[in-house]
Simulated assay, not measured.
Amino acid sequence: MKKLFILFLNLLIITSLISCKKNIYNDGIFIGKGDNYSYGYDDAAISIDEGKIVDLTLRHFNQNGKEINYEEWTGKEVNGVTNPNLQKYRGDIIQEVLEKQSGEIDIIEEIPEISSNWKLAINRALENAKK
């Protein structure tokens, strides 16, 4: 009987420890800005609810500080210019962050500077969200 009670007590403690996993993030919307570089700069807005990343917005700004027109960044030729498909890459990064619940994203080979700067912006936003 005593062994059964100790086993039950251990299971109760383990269950309590698992369910008490601490949230490391405050709830809210947190902004992070990447560095300025030759193509402009980038930022990230992360929504946290109950300690989890529930939404992410990524933006890319040109050298003049104006957000780009993503309709011109589809990987197809527009007005004689073919820009990388930022619409797709943004979606891929957002999905990766939501799945991993982390800013440790892969750098995209086709847009290394932009994706590196988005990674920096995401991690700065997550730093701002930490308790």
Score class of each variant (00 low, 15 high):
Tyr70Lys: 14
Ile48Leu: 11
Pro112Ser: 14
Glu71Ala: 03
Ser16Gly: 06
Glu113Ser: 11
Asn117Ala: 12
Cys20Ala: 06
Glu77Tyr: 05
Ile48Trp: 08
Asn79Gln: 09
Glu104Gln: 15
Ile94Trp: 03
Asn23Gly: 12
Ile122Thr: 11
Ile29Lys: 11
Gln63Asn: 05
Asp42Ser: 10
Asp43Met: 09
Asn79Trp: 12
Gly40Thr: 14
Tyr70Trp: 06
Ile48Cys: 06
Leu17Arg: 15
Lys52Gly: 06
Val78Ala: 08
Gln95Glu: 01
Ser115Met: 00
Glu71Thr: 10
Asn128Trp: 04
Ile31Gly: 09
Val54Gln: 06
Tyr41Ala: 01
Pro84Asp: 03
Ile68Glu: 08
Leu120Ile: 15
Leu56Phe: 01
Lys88His: 02
Glu71Tyr: 14
Ile14Phe: 04
Glu113Leu: 11
Cys20Thr: 15
Ile53Arg: 10
Lys22Thr: 12
Val78Ser: 05
Ile122Glu: 03
Leu56Asp: 12
His60Arg: 04
Tyr37Gly: 07
Asn85Trp: 11
Asn123Gly: 02
Gly28Asn: 07
Ser47Asp: 07
Ser116Ile: 03
Ile13Gln: 15
Trp73Gln: 08
Ile107Ser: 05
Leu17Ala: 12
Ile29Asn: 12
Glu67Gln: 02
Asp35Arg: 13
Leu86Trp: 01
Lys88Gln: 15
Ile107Asn: 04
Arg59Cys: 06
Leu86Asn: 05
Arg124Asp: 10
Lys21Ser: 10
Ile108His: 03
Ile94Glu: 02
Ser115Asp: 00
Lys100His: 14
Asn26Cys: 15
Ile29Pro: 05
Gly28His: 04
Ile24Tyr: 07
Ala44Asp: 00
Glu71Lys: 14
Asn85Glu: 06
Gly75Met: 06
Gln101Val: 00
Ala121Gln: 04
Asp42Arg: 07
Asn83Pro: 07
Asp49Phe: 14
Ala45Ser: 13
Ile105His: 14
Ile48Gln: 04
Tyr41Lys: 08
Gly40Cys: 11
Gly28Leu: 07
Lys66Ser: 15
Gly28Ser: 15
Tyr39Lys: 10
Asn85Asp: 09
Gly32Gln: 00
Asn79Ala: 15
Ser116Val: 00
Asn117Ile: 01
Glu96Gly: 00
Ile111Ala: 05
Asp55Arg: 04
Asn36Pro: 12
Gln95Asp: 04
Ile93Thr: 01
Val81Glu: 00
Gly80Trp: 06
Lys52Gln: 03
Ala125Lys: 02
Leu56Ala: 01
Asn117Pro: 08
Glu110Ala: 05
Glu127Thr: 13
Ile31Trp: 07
Glu67Cys: 09
Asp42Lys: 02
Ile29Ala: 15
Asn36Val: 09
Asp43Phe: 01
Trp118Met: 02
Asp106Leu: 11
Asn64Cys: 13
